[in-house]
Design a protein around this nucleic acid. Structure first.
Length: 273
DNA sequence: CTAACTACCTGAACGC
DNA sequence: TGCGTTCAGGTAGTTA
Protein backbone atom coordinates (compact mmCIF):
# COMPACT_ATOMS: atom_id res chain seq x y z
CA UNK A 1 0.00 0.00 0.00
CA UNK A 2 1.27 3.46 -0.84
CA UNK A 3 1.85 5.53 2.25
CA UNK A 4 2.95 9.04 1.41
CA UNK A 5 1.08 12.17 0.57
CA UNK A 6 -1.66 11.63 3.09
CA UNK A 7 -1.06 14.59 5.38
CA UNK A 8 -4.09 15.10 7.59
CA UNK A 9 -4.73 18.80 8.11
CA UNK A 10 -7.74 20.50 9.64
CA UNK A 11 -10.37 19.27 7.12
CA UNK A 12 -9.10 15.69 7.28
CA UNK A 13 -8.96 15.70 11.08
CA UNK A 14 -12.46 17.20 11.23
CA UNK A 15 -13.73 14.46 8.92
CA UNK A 16 -12.17 11.84 11.18
CA UNK A 17 -13.66 13.52 14.25
CA UNK A 18 -17.16 13.45 12.78
CA UNK A 19 -16.96 9.72 12.20
CA UNK A 20 -15.12 8.91 15.40
CA UNK A 21 -17.21 10.97 17.83
CA UNK A 22 -20.39 8.84 17.73
CA UNK A 23 -18.31 5.70 18.21
CA UNK A 24 -16.29 7.03 21.16
CA UNK A 25 -18.60 9.35 23.06
CA UNK A 26 -20.12 7.57 26.02
CA UNK A 27 -17.78 4.59 25.61
CA UNK A 28 -15.70 3.34 28.49
CA UNK A 29 -12.05 2.54 27.80
CA UNK A 30 -11.31 -0.75 29.49
CA UNK A 31 -7.60 -0.97 28.70
CA UNK A 32 -4.92 0.55 26.52
CA UNK A 33 -1.84 -1.06 25.04
CA UNK A 34 0.71 0.96 23.10
CA UNK A 35 4.06 0.25 21.52
CA UNK A 36 6.92 2.21 23.09
CA UNK A 37 7.12 5.45 21.10
CA UNK A 38 8.81 8.77 21.56
CA UNK A 39 5.53 10.56 20.88
CA UNK A 40 3.29 8.58 23.25
CA UNK A 41 2.86 9.95 26.76
CA UNK A 42 0.93 8.17 29.53
CA UNK A 43 -1.53 6.71 27.05
CA UNK A 44 -2.29 3.83 29.40
CA UNK A 45 -3.77 6.34 31.86
CA UNK A 46 -6.87 6.49 29.65
CA UNK A 47 -7.87 3.05 30.92
CA UNK A 48 -10.94 2.90 33.18
CA UNK A 49 -12.17 6.27 31.95
CA UNK A 50 -15.24 7.18 29.87
CA UNK A 51 -15.04 9.45 26.84
CA UNK A 52 -17.46 12.32 27.42
CA UNK A 53 -16.84 14.15 24.13
CA UNK A 54 -14.51 14.27 21.16
CA UNK A 55 -13.50 17.76 20.04
CA UNK A 56 -10.98 19.13 17.59
CA UNK A 57 -8.49 21.99 17.91
CA UNK A 58 -6.44 22.61 14.77
CA UNK A 59 -5.10 19.20 13.79
CA UNK A 60 -5.53 17.79 17.30
CA UNK A 61 -8.33 15.50 18.46
CA UNK A 62 -9.22 16.04 22.10
CA UNK A 63 -11.08 13.34 23.95
CA UNK A 64 -12.60 14.60 27.18
CA UNK A 65 -12.37 11.83 29.78
CA UNK A 66 -14.14 11.62 33.10
CA UNK A 67 -11.98 12.28 36.13
CA UNK A 68 -10.56 15.51 34.69
CA UNK A 69 -8.33 13.86 32.11
CA UNK A 70 -7.93 14.48 28.41
CA UNK A 71 -6.78 12.17 25.63
CA UNK A 72 -4.84 14.23 23.08
CA UNK A 73 -4.42 12.65 19.65
CA UNK A 74 -2.48 13.88 16.62
CA UNK A 75 -2.48 11.91 13.37
CA UNK A 76 0.96 13.11 12.28
CA UNK A 77 1.30 12.14 8.65
CA UNK A 78 -0.11 8.65 8.42
CA UNK A 79 -2.20 8.18 11.55
CA UNK A 80 -5.68 6.67 11.30
CA UNK A 81 -8.24 4.91 13.46
CA UNK A 82 -9.98 1.62 12.82
CA UNK A 83 -12.26 -0.73 14.69
CA UNK A 84 -11.88 -4.48 15.01
CA UNK A 85 -15.60 -4.98 14.73
CA UNK A 86 -15.74 -3.38 11.29
CA UNK A 87 -16.13 -5.53 8.18
CA UNK A 88 -12.84 -6.29 6.45
CA UNK A 89 -10.70 -5.88 9.56
CA UNK A 90 -7.40 -7.75 9.37
CA UNK A 91 -4.35 -7.72 11.67
CA UNK A 92 -1.84 -5.06 10.71
CA UNK A 93 1.78 -4.54 11.73
CA UNK A 94 1.37 -0.75 11.74
CA UNK A 95 -1.06 -0.64 14.66
CA UNK A 96 0.77 1.36 17.36
CA UNK A 97 -1.92 1.58 20.04
CA UNK A 98 -5.03 -0.39 20.94
CA UNK A 99 -7.97 0.91 22.98
CA UNK A 100 -10.25 -1.80 24.32
CA UNK A 101 -13.70 -0.23 24.60
CA UNK A 102 -16.81 -1.62 26.26
CA UNK A 103 -18.32 -2.43 22.84
CA UNK A 104 -15.40 -2.75 20.38
CA UNK A 105 -11.64 -2.32 20.03
CA UNK A 106 -10.26 0.87 18.49
CA UNK A 107 -6.82 0.77 16.91
CA UNK A 108 -4.45 3.63 16.13
CA UNK A 109 -2.55 2.77 12.95
CA UNK A 110 0.46 4.87 12.00
CA UNK A 111 3.03 3.74 9.46
CA UNK A 112 5.55 6.57 9.94
CA UNK A 113 5.15 7.04 13.68
CA UNK A 114 4.76 10.80 13.40
CA UNK A 115 1.45 10.67 15.22
CA UNK A 116 1.22 11.38 18.91
CA UNK A 117 -1.01 10.30 21.78
CA UNK A 118 -1.01 11.74 25.28
CA UNK A 119 -3.18 11.65 28.38
CA UNK A 120 -2.94 14.89 30.36
CA UNK A 121 -4.95 16.71 33.02
CA UNK A 122 -7.68 18.43 31.02
CA UNK A 123 -6.32 21.58 29.37
CA UNK A 124 -2.80 21.10 30.71
CA UNK A 125 -0.72 21.28 27.55
CA UNK A 126 2.62 22.08 29.15
CA UNK A 127 4.28 19.13 27.46
CA UNK A 128 2.68 19.97 24.10
CA UNK A 129 4.16 23.29 23.03
CA UNK A 130 2.36 23.58 19.71
CA UNK A 131 -1.04 22.87 21.22
CA UNK A 132 -0.33 25.20 24.13
CA UNK A 133 0.31 28.16 21.82
CA UNK A 134 -2.13 27.18 19.09
CA UNK A 135 -3.72 30.04 17.15
CA UNK A 136 -7.48 30.57 16.75
CA UNK A 137 -9.81 28.13 15.04
CA UNK A 138 -10.07 29.46 11.48
CA UNK A 139 -13.77 28.68 11.06
CA UNK A 140 -14.83 30.24 14.34
CA UNK A 141 -15.59 33.83 15.33
CA UNK A 142 -12.36 33.98 17.31
CA UNK A 143 -10.50 34.15 13.98
CA UNK A 144 -10.59 37.87 13.37
CA UNK A 145 -9.15 39.50 10.25
CA UNK A 146 -7.55 42.48 11.96
CA UNK A 147 -6.06 40.37 14.72
CA UNK A 148 -4.81 37.99 12.03
CA UNK A 149 -3.14 40.90 10.23
CA UNK A 150 -1.42 41.95 13.46
CA UNK A 151 -0.29 38.36 14.09
CA UNK A 152 1.10 38.08 10.56
CA UNK A 153 3.08 41.28 11.09
CA UNK A 154 4.35 40.08 14.46
CA UNK A 155 6.81 37.70 12.85
CA UNK A 156 9.66 38.40 10.48
CA UNK A 157 9.36 34.91 9.03
CA UNK A 158 8.13 34.36 5.48
CA UNK A 159 4.34 34.10 5.53
CA UNK A 160 4.09 30.44 4.57
CA UNK A 161 6.45 28.99 7.22
CA UNK A 162 4.77 31.29 9.75
CA UNK A 163 1.37 29.79 8.88
CA UNK A 164 2.81 26.31 9.34
CA UNK A 165 3.83 27.09 12.94
CA UNK A 166 0.10 26.96 13.88
CA UNK A 167 0.48 30.22 15.81
CA UNK A 168 -1.36 32.84 13.71
CA UNK A 169 -4.13 30.32 12.95
CA UNK A 170 -4.70 26.64 13.77
CA UNK A 171 -4.85 23.68 11.43
CA UNK A 172 -3.03 24.86 8.28
CA UNK A 173 -0.53 22.42 6.77
CA UNK A 174 1.41 22.32 3.55
CA UNK A 175 -1.55 21.64 1.25
CA UNK A 176 -3.96 24.32 2.45
CA UNK A 177 -1.17 26.86 2.96
CA UNK A 178 -0.33 26.66 -0.75
CA UNK A 179 -4.02 26.70 -1.70
CA UNK A 180 -4.92 29.70 0.47
CA UNK A 181 -1.86 31.74 -0.57
CA UNK A 182 -2.67 31.08 -4.22
CA UNK A 183 -6.27 32.13 -3.76
CA UNK A 184 -5.24 35.31 -1.92
CA UNK A 185 -2.52 36.05 -4.49
CA UNK A 186 0.16 36.27 -1.83
CA UNK A 187 3.74 35.21 -2.46
CA UNK A 188 4.74 32.53 0.06
CA UNK A 189 8.09 34.28 0.64
CA UNK A 190 6.46 37.57 1.67
CA UNK A 191 7.76 38.79 5.02
CA UNK A 192 5.26 41.59 5.30
CA UNK A 193 1.56 41.45 4.46
CA UNK A 194 -0.58 44.56 4.32
CA UNK A 195 -4.09 44.80 5.82
CA UNK A 196 -5.94 44.22 2.54
CA UNK A 197 -3.88 41.17 1.69
CA UNK A 198 -4.14 39.86 5.23
CA UNK A 199 -7.90 40.09 4.93
CA UNK A 200 -7.80 38.30 1.58
CA UNK A 201 -5.73 35.53 3.15
CA UNK A 202 -8.09 35.36 6.13
CA UNK A 203 -10.97 34.89 3.69
CA UNK A 204 -9.06 32.39 1.52
CA UNK A 205 -8.12 30.25 4.52
CA UNK A 206 -11.73 30.05 5.61
CA UNK A 207 -12.91 29.22 2.10
CA UNK A 208 -10.40 26.49 1.28
CA UNK A 209 -10.89 24.81 4.65
CA UNK A 210 -14.69 25.05 4.52
CA UNK A 211 -14.82 23.64 1.00
CA UNK A 212 -12.41 20.81 1.88
CA UNK A 213 -14.48 19.85 4.92
CA UNK A 214 -17.57 19.70 2.71
CA UNK A 215 -15.66 17.21 0.54
CA UNK A 216 -14.42 15.31 3.60
CA UNK A 217 -10.79 16.23 3.04
CA UNK A 218 -8.05 15.61 0.49
CA UNK A 219 -6.81 12.10 -0.22
CA UNK A 220 -3.72 11.47 -2.35
CA UNK A 221 -2.87 7.97 -1.38
CA UNK A 222 -3.65 6.77 2.07
CA UNK A 223 -5.49 9.34 4.15
CA UNK A 224 -8.70 7.53 4.97
CA UNK A 225 -11.60 8.28 7.21
CA UNK A 226 -12.71 5.87 9.90
CA UNK A 227 -15.11 4.24 7.44
CA UNK A 228 -12.20 3.64 5.06
CA UNK A 229 -13.38 6.08 2.44
CA UNK A 230 -11.31 8.75 0.69
CA UNK A 231 -11.85 12.49 0.83
CA UNK A 232 -13.03 14.07 -2.41
CA UNK A 233 -11.07 17.33 -2.37
CA UNK A 234 -7.97 16.26 -4.35
CA UNK A 235 -9.37 17.15 -7.82
CA UNK A 236 -10.08 20.68 -6.60
CA UNK A 237 -6.49 21.51 -5.63
CA UNK A 238 -5.17 24.39 -7.70
CA UNK A 239 -1.63 24.89 -6.37
CA UNK A 240 -0.44 22.01 -4.18
CA UNK A 241 1.07 19.24 -6.28
CA UNK A 242 0.35 21.13 -9.52
CA UNK A 243 3.87 22.41 -10.32
CA UNK A 244 4.40 22.93 -14.05
CA UNK A 245 0.71 23.12 -14.85
CA UNK A 246 -0.70 26.44 -16.00
CA UNK A 247 -2.09 28.74 -13.34
CA UNK A 248 -5.91 28.66 -13.72
CA UNK A 249 -5.97 32.46 -13.38
CA UNK A 250 -3.20 33.58 -15.73
CA UNK A 251 -1.75 30.54 -17.49
CA UNK A 252 1.79 30.95 -16.15
CA UNK A 253 3.32 27.57 -15.27
CA UNK A 254 3.19 27.08 -11.50
CA UNK A 255 6.64 27.02 -9.87
CA UNK A 256 7.84 24.70 -7.14
CA UNK A 257 10.47 25.80 -4.66
CA UNK A 258 11.65 24.75 -1.23
CA UNK A 259 10.70 27.18 1.52
CA UNK A 260 11.40 26.51 5.17
CA UNK A 261 12.35 22.97 4.17
CA UNK A 262 8.92 22.33 2.60
CA UNK A 263 7.83 21.95 -0.98
CA UNK A 264 5.96 25.09 -2.02
CA UNK A 265 4.03 25.61 -5.23
CA UNK A 266 2.84 29.03 -6.34
CA UNK A 267 2.19 31.21 -9.38
CA UNK A 268 5.17 33.51 -10.04
CA UNK A 269 2.91 35.92 -11.92
CA UNK A 270 -0.21 36.41 -9.82
CA UNK A 271 1.57 35.78 -6.53
CA UNK A 272 4.28 38.34 -7.22
CA UNK A 273 6.23 39.65 -4.29
C1' DC B 1 12.75 35.67 23.26
C1' DT B 2 12.95 34.59 17.86
C1' DA B 3 14.30 32.17 13.81
C1' DA B 4 16.69 28.69 11.51
C1' DC B 5 18.07 24.19 11.30
C1' DT B 6 17.77 19.10 12.04
C1' DA B 7 15.89 14.63 13.66
C1' DC B 8 12.34 11.61 13.65
C1' DC B 9 10.15 7.54 10.36
C1' DT B 10 8.86 4.73 6.42
C1' DG B 11 7.84 3.39 1.78
C1' DA B 12 7.40 5.16 -2.92
C1' DA B 13 9.72 6.82 -6.70
C1' DC B 14 13.72 7.44 -9.08
C1' DG B 15 18.59 6.67 -11.08
C1' DC B 16 21.95 3.64 -12.72
C1' DT C 1 16.77 -7.34 -11.04
C1' DG C 2 18.72 -4.91 -7.48
C1' DC C 3 20.65 -1.61 -4.92
C1' DG C 4 21.35 3.05 -3.47
C1' DT C 5 19.49 7.79 -3.06
C1' DT C 6 15.97 11.20 -2.57
C1' DC C 7 11.59 12.79 -1.25
C1' DA C 8 7.39 13.64 1.57
C1' DG C 9 5.97 16.04 5.93
C1' DG C 10 4.24 18.02 11.43
C1' DT C 11 6.27 18.64 15.36
C1' DA C 12 9.93 18.65 18.88
C1' DG C 13 14.34 19.53 20.00
C1' DT C 14 18.66 22.04 19.47
C1' DT C 15 21.47 25.86 18.16
C1' DA C 16 22.72 30.65 17.03
Amino acid sequence: MAENGAVPELPEVESVRRQLAPRLEGRRILSVTATPQLRFHHVEAAAHHTVASLRRRGKYLLGELDGGLELVMHLGMTGSFRFRGDPGWTPDTYVRATFELDDDVMEFRDVRRFGSLAVVPAGDYRGLATLASLGPEPLSDEFDPSVFHRDLQRSSMAVKPWLLTQRPVAGIGNIYADEALWRARINPHARSVGPARARALWQAIREVLFEAIEREGTTFRDYRMVNGESGRNAPFLVAYGQAGRPCPRCGTPLRKVTLGGRGTTYCPTCQRR
